[in-house]
Amino acid sequence: MGILEIQNVNKSFGGLKALQNVNLNIEEGTIHAIIGPNGAGKSTLLNCFVGKLVPDTGTVTFDGHSLLGKKPHEINQIGVSRVFQTPEIFSDLSVFENVMIPCFAKRDGAFELNALSRVQGQGDIRDKAEQMLIDVNMIDKRDMIASSMSRGDKRRLEMAMCLAQDPKLLLLDEPTAGMARADTNNTIERLVPTTQSSCWPKFRTSGISPWL
Protein backbone atom coordinates (compact mmCIF):
# COMPACT_ATOMS: atom_id res chain seq x y z
CA MET A 1 0.00 0.00 0.00
CA GLY A 2 1.57 3.26 -1.12
CA ILE A 3 0.67 6.68 0.15
CA LEU A 4 -0.41 7.74 -3.31
CA GLU A 5 -2.26 5.30 -5.52
CA ILE A 6 -3.36 5.98 -9.03
CA GLN A 7 -5.47 3.45 -10.80
CA ASN A 8 -6.59 3.41 -14.42
CA VAL A 9 -6.58 7.15 -14.79
CA ASN A 10 -7.77 8.42 -18.16
CA LYS A 11 -8.06 11.99 -19.26
CA SER A 12 -8.74 13.31 -22.70
CA PHE A 13 -9.23 16.81 -24.06
CA GLY A 14 -11.62 16.59 -26.96
CA GLY A 15 -10.08 13.98 -29.20
CA LEU A 16 -6.65 14.10 -27.58
CA LYS A 17 -5.96 11.38 -25.08
CA ALA A 18 -3.55 12.97 -22.63
CA LEU A 19 -3.55 10.18 -20.10
CA GLN A 20 -4.34 6.61 -20.86
CA ASN A 21 -4.63 3.96 -18.20
CA VAL A 22 -2.09 5.42 -15.85
CA ASN A 23 -1.31 3.27 -12.83
CA LEU A 24 1.10 4.38 -10.15
CA ASN A 25 1.88 3.44 -6.62
CA ILE A 26 4.11 5.72 -4.58
CA GLU A 27 5.56 4.55 -1.29
CA GLU A 28 6.14 6.85 1.62
CA GLY A 29 9.66 8.25 1.86
CA THR A 30 10.63 7.84 -1.75
CA ILE A 31 11.62 10.23 -4.51
CA HIS A 32 10.30 9.82 -7.98
CA ALA A 33 10.80 11.67 -11.21
CA ILE A 34 8.49 11.73 -14.14
CA ILE A 35 10.19 12.36 -17.42
CA GLY A 36 8.98 12.62 -20.90
CA PRO A 37 9.04 14.90 -23.92
CA ASN A 38 6.86 17.96 -24.23
CA GLY A 39 3.20 17.07 -24.43
CA ALA A 40 3.67 13.68 -22.87
CA GLY A 41 1.03 14.45 -20.24
CA LYS A 42 3.24 15.07 -17.22
CA SER A 43 1.51 18.27 -16.19
CA THR A 44 -1.90 16.77 -16.86
CA LEU A 45 -1.10 13.96 -14.49
CA LEU A 46 0.09 16.38 -11.84
CA ASN A 47 -3.00 18.47 -12.28
CA CYS A 48 -5.10 15.42 -11.51
CA PHE A 49 -3.41 15.17 -8.11
CA VAL A 50 -3.97 18.73 -6.97
CA GLY A 51 -7.58 19.19 -8.01
CA LYS A 52 -6.97 21.33 -11.04
CA LEU A 53 -8.30 18.62 -13.33
CA VAL A 54 -10.65 15.74 -12.68
CA PRO A 55 -9.79 12.50 -14.49
CA ASP A 56 -12.43 11.09 -16.82
CA THR A 57 -12.14 7.67 -15.24
CA GLY A 58 -9.97 5.99 -12.61
CA THR A 59 -9.15 6.71 -9.00
CA VAL A 60 -6.55 8.80 -7.24
CA THR A 61 -6.14 8.01 -3.56
CA PHE A 62 -3.82 9.74 -1.17
CA ASP A 63 -3.27 8.58 2.37
CA GLY A 64 -6.63 6.84 2.31
CA HIS A 65 -8.55 9.84 0.87
CA SER A 66 -9.89 9.91 -2.66
CA LEU A 67 -8.68 13.09 -4.30
CA LEU A 68 -11.33 13.06 -7.00
CA GLY A 69 -13.63 16.07 -6.90
CA LYS A 70 -11.77 17.61 -4.00
CA LYS A 71 -10.99 21.31 -4.17
CA PRO A 72 -7.34 22.38 -4.34
CA HIS A 73 -7.32 23.72 -0.80
CA GLU A 74 -8.80 20.51 0.56
CA ILE A 75 -6.14 18.45 -1.17
CA ASN A 76 -3.46 20.69 0.20
CA GLN A 77 -4.85 20.36 3.70
CA ILE A 78 -4.49 16.56 3.42
CA GLY A 79 -0.82 17.12 2.80
CA VAL A 80 -0.09 17.64 -0.88
CA SER A 81 1.92 20.71 -1.88
CA ARG A 82 2.92 21.77 -5.31
CA VAL A 83 5.62 23.98 -6.78
CA PHE A 84 4.55 25.30 -10.15
CA GLN A 85 6.48 25.42 -13.37
CA THR A 86 6.29 29.22 -13.45
CA PRO A 87 6.60 30.52 -9.92
CA GLU A 88 3.25 31.13 -8.28
CA ILE A 89 3.89 33.43 -5.37
CA PHE A 90 2.17 36.40 -3.76
CA SER A 91 4.10 38.93 -5.73
CA ASP A 92 2.72 42.07 -4.05
CA LEU A 93 3.57 40.81 -0.57
CA SER A 94 6.90 40.72 1.17
CA VAL A 95 8.97 37.53 1.19
CA PHE A 96 8.32 37.06 4.85
CA GLU A 97 4.56 37.40 4.40
CA ASN A 98 4.74 34.90 1.55
CA VAL A 99 6.16 32.30 3.86
CA MET A 100 3.88 33.15 6.75
CA ILE A 101 0.74 32.38 4.75
CA PRO A 102 1.41 28.63 4.39
CA CYS A 103 2.34 28.55 8.07
CA PHE A 104 -1.09 29.98 8.86
CA ALA A 105 -2.69 27.45 6.53
CA LYS A 106 -0.92 24.65 8.35
CA ARG A 107 -1.89 25.92 11.78
CA ASP A 108 -5.39 27.28 11.26
CA GLY A 109 -6.79 25.17 8.45
CA ALA A 110 -8.58 26.35 5.36
CA PHE A 111 -10.40 29.26 6.97
CA GLU A 112 -10.06 31.15 10.22
CA LEU A 113 -11.65 34.52 10.86
CA ASN A 114 -8.79 35.94 12.91
CA ALA A 115 -9.62 39.47 11.90
CA LEU A 116 -8.66 41.12 15.13
CA SER A 117 -5.51 39.29 16.12
CA ARG A 118 -2.26 40.74 14.92
CA VAL A 119 0.19 39.28 12.48
CA GLN A 120 2.86 40.86 14.66
CA GLY A 121 1.66 38.86 17.64
CA GLN A 122 1.83 35.44 16.01
CA GLY A 123 5.13 34.34 17.56
CA ASP A 124 4.99 30.70 16.53
CA ILE A 125 4.18 31.53 12.92
CA ARG A 126 6.88 34.16 12.70
CA ASP A 127 9.50 31.86 14.20
CA LYS A 128 8.61 29.11 11.81
CA ALA A 129 8.61 31.38 8.77
CA GLU A 130 11.91 32.88 9.84
CA GLN A 131 13.44 29.45 10.28
CA MET A 132 12.23 28.48 6.85
CA LEU A 133 13.82 31.55 5.29
CA ILE A 134 17.06 30.78 7.06
CA ASP A 135 16.86 27.24 5.72
CA VAL A 136 16.55 28.39 2.13
CA ASN A 137 19.11 31.11 2.61
CA MET A 138 16.74 33.99 2.00
CA ILE A 139 16.58 35.59 5.41
CA ASP A 140 18.40 38.66 4.12
CA LYS A 141 15.56 39.21 1.64
CA ARG A 142 12.75 38.87 4.12
CA ASP A 143 11.36 42.40 3.67
CA MET A 144 11.66 42.54 -0.09
CA ILE A 145 8.51 42.68 -2.18
CA ALA A 146 8.38 39.26 -3.81
CA SER A 147 7.84 40.53 -7.33
CA SER A 148 11.14 42.40 -7.28
CA MET A 149 13.23 39.22 -6.94
CA SER A 150 14.94 37.21 -9.62
CA ARG A 151 13.19 34.24 -11.11
CA GLY A 152 15.41 31.82 -9.28
CA ASP A 153 14.69 33.49 -5.96
CA LYS A 154 10.99 33.36 -6.65
CA ARG A 155 11.30 29.66 -7.26
CA ARG A 156 13.20 29.18 -4.05
CA LEU A 157 10.60 31.21 -2.25
CA GLU A 158 7.84 29.05 -3.65
CA MET A 159 9.66 25.97 -2.52
CA ALA A 160 10.07 27.46 0.93
CA MET A 161 6.36 28.13 0.99
CA CYS A 162 5.61 24.50 0.17
CA LEU A 163 8.13 23.15 2.63
CA ALA A 164 6.79 25.37 5.38
CA GLN A 165 3.69 23.22 5.36
CA ASP A 166 5.63 19.98 6.07
CA PRO A 167 3.77 18.29 3.25
CA LYS A 168 3.44 14.57 3.05
CA LEU A 169 3.76 14.80 -0.69
CA LEU A 170 5.66 17.50 -2.48
CA LEU A 171 5.15 17.91 -6.19
CA LEU A 172 7.79 19.86 -8.01
CA ASP A 173 7.34 21.00 -11.55
CA GLU A 174 10.82 21.73 -12.91
CA PRO A 175 12.05 23.00 -9.59
CA THR A 176 15.49 24.08 -10.66
CA ALA A 177 14.84 25.47 -14.12
CA GLY A 178 16.16 29.00 -14.42
CA MET A 179 18.17 28.86 -11.23
CA ALA A 180 21.82 29.69 -10.98
CA ARG A 181 24.06 26.68 -10.45
CA ALA A 182 24.73 27.53 -6.82
CA ASP A 183 21.09 27.98 -6.12
CA THR A 184 20.36 24.64 -7.70
CA ASN A 185 22.76 23.00 -5.34
CA ASN A 186 21.30 24.83 -2.40
CA THR A 187 17.88 23.67 -3.41
CA ILE A 188 19.01 20.10 -3.62
CA GLU A 189 20.65 20.31 -0.25
CA ARG A 190 17.51 21.71 1.20
CA LEU A 191 15.38 19.07 -0.43
CA VAL A 192 17.35 15.99 0.47
CA PRO A 193 16.62 16.05 4.21
CA THR A 194 12.93 16.49 3.62
CA THR A 195 12.80 13.39 1.54
CA GLN A 196 13.15 11.48 4.75
CA SER A 197 9.48 12.14 5.03
CA SER A 198 7.50 11.44 1.96
CA CYS A 199 8.31 13.83 -0.81
CA TRP A 200 8.01 13.26 -4.43
CA PRO A 201 9.72 15.74 -6.59
CA LYS A 202 8.85 15.73 -10.20
CA PHE A 203 11.06 16.92 -13.00
CA ARG A 204 9.64 17.62 -16.32
CA THR A 205 12.55 18.25 -18.54
CA SER A 206 15.28 15.74 -18.77
CA GLY A 207 18.87 16.89 -19.07
CA ILE A 208 18.81 20.07 -17.06
CA SER A 209 18.00 18.50 -13.82
CA PRO A 210 20.98 17.12 -11.94
CA TRP A 211 18.73 14.55 -10.43
CA LEU A 212 18.63 12.34 -13.44
Binding site: P72, H73, E88, D92, F104, A110, N114, V119
Partner: peptide, 26 residues
Protein backbone atom coordinates in the same frame (compact mmCIF):
# COMPACT_ATOMS: atom_id res chain seq x y z
CA UNK B 1 -8.15 44.07 10.06
CA UNK B 2 -5.36 45.42 7.86
CA UNK B 3 -2.76 44.17 10.31
CA UNK B 4 -4.41 40.83 11.07
CA UNK B 5 -3.74 37.42 9.55
CA UNK B 6 -7.20 37.79 8.02
CA UNK B 7 -6.10 40.99 6.32
CA UNK B 8 -2.95 39.24 5.13
CA UNK B 9 -5.08 36.53 3.53
CA UNK B 10 -7.24 39.16 1.84
CA UNK B 11 -4.19 40.80 0.36
CA UNK B 12 -2.98 37.39 -0.71
CA UNK B 13 -6.28 36.88 -2.54
CA UNK B 14 -5.71 40.10 -4.42
CA UNK B 15 -2.22 39.23 -5.54
CA UNK B 16 -2.59 35.52 -6.31
CA UNK B 17 -5.76 33.66 -5.54
CA UNK B 18 -4.60 30.45 -7.25
CA UNK B 19 -1.57 30.20 -5.03
CA UNK B 20 -3.69 30.75 -1.98
CA UNK B 21 -5.93 27.84 -2.92
CA UNK B 22 -2.94 25.58 -3.56
CA UNK B 23 -1.59 26.64 -0.19
CA UNK B 24 -4.57 25.05 1.50
CA UNK B 25 -6.64 28.13 2.13
CA UNK B 26 -10.23 28.44 1.01
Amino acid sequence: IFRSPFGLMLRAIKTNQTRLNYTGLN
